[in-house]
């Protein structure tokens, strides 16, 4: 089974070589003319703020989205094998999945109605 992954590894090596090589080459070939303004953070030409938005200042909204994503991604994790084996599972599978999806739906409806999906 694992031999199936060898080609992927080969492709990975090729791509990685290409990427690293190019970046290295770009750094080597490119000119270097120092200018203080060049290496400042870009803020549309005005004086950059001394402390840019730090990693602690994400809007909470993003966490929310991440959590929602996790929930649905999990659902999909279960949906895939279920779909593949669907013909064998037939009625049982449909019933079980319907139950499962109903559960997720409830959570989803709650999230929606309570404004969890709103962006401002």
């Amino acid at each position: 089974m694992l031999s199936n992954y060898v080609p992927i590894l080969v492709l990975l090596v090729i791509a990685a070589l290409f990427a690293v090589g190019s970046v290295a080459a770009g750094a080597l070939i490119g000119p270097r003319r120092f200018n203080r303004a060049k290496i400042d953070a870009y803020e549309c030409g005005i004086e950059p703020s001394p402390a840019p938005a730090g990693p602690q200042r994400f809007p909470v909204k993003y966490y929310n989205t991440a959590m929602l994503f996790i929930v649905f991604d999990i659902e999909i994790i279960f949906l895939f094998p279920w779909a593949v084996a669907f013909d064998s599972l037939a009625v049982f599978g449909l019933g079980a999945m319907a139950l499962f999806m109903a559960t997720i739906f409830v959570a989803y409806a709650y999230e929606w109605r309570r404004g969890g999906l709103e962006w401002d």
Binding site: A85, S88, L89, A90, V91, F92, G93, A96, A102, T103, V106, A107, A109, Y110, W112, R113, R114
Partner: peptide, 30 residues
């Protein structure tokens, strides 16, 4: 694959409570 069977009736206490929880969430939503 032979699908496993689930004796829903024997699980009814759990299922009832679970269902109530879901309904509760919906109530909270609406």
């Amino acid at each position: 694959i032979t699908p496993p069977s689930i004796e829903y009736s024997s699980l009814s206490p759990i299922l009832i409570v679970f269902g109530v929880a879901l309904v509760g969430v919906l109530v909270d939503a609406f």
